[in-house]
Design a protein around this nucleic acid. Structure first.
Lengths: 338, 338
DNA sequence: CTGAAAGCGCTAACAA
DNA sequence: TTGTTAGCGCTTTCAG
C-alpha cells in the first residue's frame, strides 16, 4: 500500500509538499506540483481518508442518517437534501442504518468520525429520551419525523414532517365525503409509537368528527410490518372474517397495493365494491390500475426545508423549530362515490 | 471530545487497558474492566473508528459496493449477502454509490480505508478495462452483473448473474408460444453496453429463432432510463405512432408497470388487447392487477453465491469463476393466448 | 516555496 | 494482568 511518504520519495519532495498538492494548496511550485501529480497518477495513489479524517477538522460536512433503504420516497428526499446542501457549499455524507439500529447512536458515532457540523435524521423513530438525544452535540434536524407520540420538549429539537394524524384524518374524510360510512383501516400497529399509530389516530378522529362509531373489527393490522406482502396477508385474513365495509383506508401506499390484491382475490372490485385511499404518494401507486388515491408527502420540500432549518442553526440564524408541511391530495380512480 | 486517554485517566488505568476493554480482550482483570466500563458508560464515550481503522488490520471485513439504491430487488440481495457473510464469520461494510460514480474507484478507496479482505460489487456497469479493474487488489466478485458486452478476460474476474440475453429470449418465447407474432419491445437503450442491450439482444434472438422478422418500429426506447415514469412516457409516445402489436416485452418489471398504464390510457386492455411480460420479479409486480408475468431474478441465490465465490477466493479454495444462475418464470395474468 | 517534526486517537508489540 | 511506547497515514504548524 502506497503512502504519501512513498510518493514523496518517488517525486523527490517532502511529504508536506505531497500533502499540499493533494489538497490543492497554492504554495507549491508548478514544477513540484507537476512531478507529484505525475507520480500519483502513475501509481494510482489513493490518499487514505481514514488518516485524513483523523487529522483534518472538516468545516462543512453534514451527516445524513437514513433508516431503511426500502422506503421508496426517501430517494427523492435524499436527492433534495443533497442538492440543497451542495448548493449551500456543504458536503453530505450519508449513512444507512437498519430498521432496528439506534439512529442516535449512529449519529453520535458519525459525528465523531466525520467531525460533522450537523446531522439530518431521515425517517426515524420518535421515542428517544432527552438524554439519548443529548449524545449528539451538533445541531440536527429530524426529517419526516413526528414527535406527536414522543415526550420531547419542543424547544429541544428541530423537525420537518407532515402531520400524520391530519393526513390520515383528511384521507378518511375524503372517503366519508364520498358517502362512505363503513370504513375499514389497515394499519401496522395502533399503539406502537410509530407513524402507524399517528395515522390510526387520524382515522379515529375523522370517524369521531363525523359521528361514525369506531368499529374495532374493521381495524386490520399487520402486526408491525409496513411490507406489501404482510399487508396482503393481513387483508386476506381479515376478509375471511368480515366484509362489512365499503371503503378502506391504508396507512401507506405500499400497504394499499398489497391490500388491493387481497380485495380483488376475494371478489371485491376496486372501486366498485370497495374504495381505497392511502398516504404517501410513492411513484408506483400512480401507475397501477386503478390509480391509487392518496395524500402525497411533499418529498422535495421535506428535504429542502430540513436543510434550511439545519443551516439556520449552524450558521446561528435561528434555534429549534418544528415545521409541519402540508400533504397534497392526488385523486385516483380507487374511490367511488356512493 | 473524549479519547481513550481521558477514559484511562478517569478510570485510573493505562490506555492499553482501556483499549483491551474496548476490544473485549480476555487479559483484563474484572475489576479494571468494570471500572473502565463504568467510566465509558458514564461519559458516553465513543471510540473513534477512524483511529481504529488506521491502526487495525481488519482480518475479516468484506466491502459491498452498491450502485443505486432505488433498485428494489437489491434489498433482498443485500440481505442475503449480509447474512451469508455473517454466517461465515465476516463483517460486511456497505457503500452506496450514485448512478454515475465509478465503482472501481469506490472499491479501491474502500479497500484502502477499511483494509478489506474482499469486495462484492452489486449491479454495476460491465465495461471496465483490465487496467481499471487492476486497481482493486483484493479478491472481488461482480454480482448481478454480466460481461457479455465487455471485453474482459474470463480468467480475470468472478461474477454471479443471470444470463440477461437468455432470460429475455425465454420471455419473448413465452409470448410467441402463446400465439403472438407481433411483439413490441420496451428497452432503455439498444447499444448502451448495459443490461438493456443484452435483453434487447435476447428479444432479437427469440424472434430470429422463430422466424419472425425484427420490426424496428416496434422497438421503443426510453433513451437510457429505467425509471417507471420514463417508461410510461416512452410508451405513451410510441402508441401515438403504432399499435400494430399484440404483446409487449419490457426489459424490466418497473418499466412494464409504467408501460401498462400507457396501454390502458390508449384504450388497450391487458391482457385482452395486449399481453405484457418482463424480467426481474420485483415485489410490487406481484400485487398489481393484472399480476405481471415475468422472469424472476434468483435474488437470494445471487447473494449467497457471490459470497461463496468470494470466500473461496479469499480462503484459497478457488480462482475466478463466472456463475450464471437461472431465472424462474412467474406466470401472471398479463398474458393471453391468441 | 519547502521540509522537519509534532501530533490526530487508537492498537499492538514488548516489558514489567 | 498491566503499562510504555512505537507507529498507522496524514495535515499542519513552524522554521528556514
Amino acid at each position: 500500500m502506497l503512502t504519501i511518504k512513498d510518493i514523496a520519495r518517488l517525486a523527490n519532495v517532502s511529504v508536506s509538499t505531497v500533502s499540499r498538492v493533494l489538497n490543492d494548496r497554492p504554495d507549491v511550485s508548478e514544477e513540484s506540483r507537476r512531478r507529484v501529480r505525475a507520480v500519483i497518477e502513475e501509481h494510482h495513489f489513493i490518499p487514505s481518508n481514514t488518516a485524513r479524517d483523523l487529522v483534518r477538522v472538516n468545516p462543512d460536512t453534514i451527516g445524513l442518517i437514513v433508516r431503511g433503504m426500502q422506503n421508496p420516497f426517501y430517494t427523492d428526499i435524499i436527492l433534495a437534501i443533497e442538492s440543497a446542501l451542495e448548493h449551500a457549499g456543504y458536503t453530505m455524507v450519508m449513512r444507512q442504518i437498519g430498521f432496528s439500529d439506534n439512529e442516535i447512536e449512529a449519529g453520535a458515532v458519525m459525528q465523531r468520525e466525520k467531525k460533522l457540523r450537523g446531522i439530518i435524521f431521515l425517517g426515524g423513530r420518535s421515542d428517544y429520551s432527552p438524554e439519548e438525544l443529548a449524545r449528539v452535540s451538533v445541531p440536527y434536524v429530524l426529517c419526516s419525523y413526528t414527535n406527536a407520540c414522543g415526550t420531547l420538549d419542543k424547544s429541544a429539537y428541530s423537525s420537518v414532517s407532515i402531520c400524520d394524524e391530519d393526513a390520515a384524518r383528511d384521507a378518511v374524510e375524503q372517503l366519508i365525503e364520498s358517502g362512505h360510512r363503513r370504513i375499514a383501516a389497515l394499519v401496522a400497529g395502533t399503539d406502537d409509537s410509530t407513524i402507524s399509530q399517528l395515522r390510526y389516530e387520524g382515522y379515529c378522529r375523522a370517524l369521531r368528527e363525523h359521528n361514525i362509531p369506531l368499529r374495532e373489527e374493521l381495524v386490520f393490522t399487520t402486526g408491525d410490518s409496513f411490507a406489501i406482502e404482510d399487508a396482503y396477508h393481513a387483508m386476506d385474513e381479515a376478509l375471511t372474517r368480515t366484509t362489512d365495509f365499503t371503503a378502506l383506508f391504508a396507512i401507506a401506499d405500499d400497504m394499499a397495493i398489497g391490500a388491493m390484491r387481497a380485495l380483488r382475490e376475494h371478489g371485491r372490485a376496486i372501486p366498485d365494491d370497495c374504495s381505497v385511499i392511502a398516504i404517501d404518494g410513492i411513484a408506483v401507486s400512480e401507475y397501477i390500475h386503478p390509480m391509487l388515491a392518496t395524500f402525497c408527502q411533499p418529498k422535495t420540500e421535506l428535504g429542502t426545508k430540513s436543510v434550511e432549518l439545519l443551516l439556520d442553526m449552524i450558521e446561528g440564524r435561528g434555534g429549534h423549530r418544528q415545521v409541519i408541511l402540508p400533504t397534497t391530495f392526488r385523486a385516483g380512480a380507487s374511490i367511488r362515490s356512493i
